[in-house]
Design a binder for these strands. Sequence first.
DNA 1: CCAAGGCCTGAATG
DNA 2: ACATTCAGGCCTT
Length: 280
Amino acid sequence: MQNNCIINVENSINSGQVFLWRKNGKNWYGVNGQDILKITDSGNIKSYQNVKADFFRKKDNIAKIIKSISKDKVTKKAVKQYLGLRILEQDPFQCLISFIVSSNSNIQKIKNSLEDISKKFGVKVKFENQEFFLFPKPERLANASIDEIKSCGVGYRARFIKEAAKITVKEQIDFEYLKRCSYHEAKKEICQIPGVGNKVSDCILLFSLNKLESFPLDRWMIRILEKYYSDKFHLETKTITEKQYEMLHEKIVNHFGPFAGYAQQFLFKMERENYQKKWL
DNA sequence: CCAAGGCCTGAATG
DNA sequence: ACATTCAGGCCTT
């Protein structure tokens, strides 16, 4: 019971949720929208803007969640192995752009691109004697040229980024509303944004909009399902169509329950570690 | 509704 | 060296 309350900062940051983070000595520093966060090894957060954000989702009853998602041997093992791994609650706009950038890419490149975007369009600040660039505001990216954005190494995603920023500025998307409404409603809304499909939207919903039943199905998760859950979720085709994705997600929520997103995060972390994949 | 092909980029593979 | 291939997908045909 007590053990379940521990937060493992390292595992949480190094699990493919966030990209603009670096370790300096014992402390982690990261960009979260218009804020910079410092996390000490004991898990205390200091905010550049003095904002009290629940970055580690302490509001979640983690003991209850872990009990809820531990439906089979595989998740039980993953949860035990990476106890303290948490879903992070990020700035929604940064999260949106981050996962548009992530599509058809990999962690190192995503990190590089996002760093370039911050440097080029974000405001430089000093925090604890270190230099940081805040994540650009939607207005700044909405007004940037496609070529300027492309210079950050994002290729064809540049126009998606500009368009997503424009939609945010025009308030055609309301993150505060999306935080409150249902998973399906929020998903429908956010999939309207160009460059945001099934997988990317599930990441945004899980990591910034409070939708814990969201279960991003990327290549790794599909591989994991094939490897450990072939009896429960039979996957025949190589490419997952929209309809199949939807049906698969329904089966997944039926199995793992309303906090399926946590199960996804533990499984993803476990398998990537098994293959010794690099993080930040 | 499904399948196939194209897309920026850079690190890894042959 | 150089050419493929591939990587946390999405969009168009």
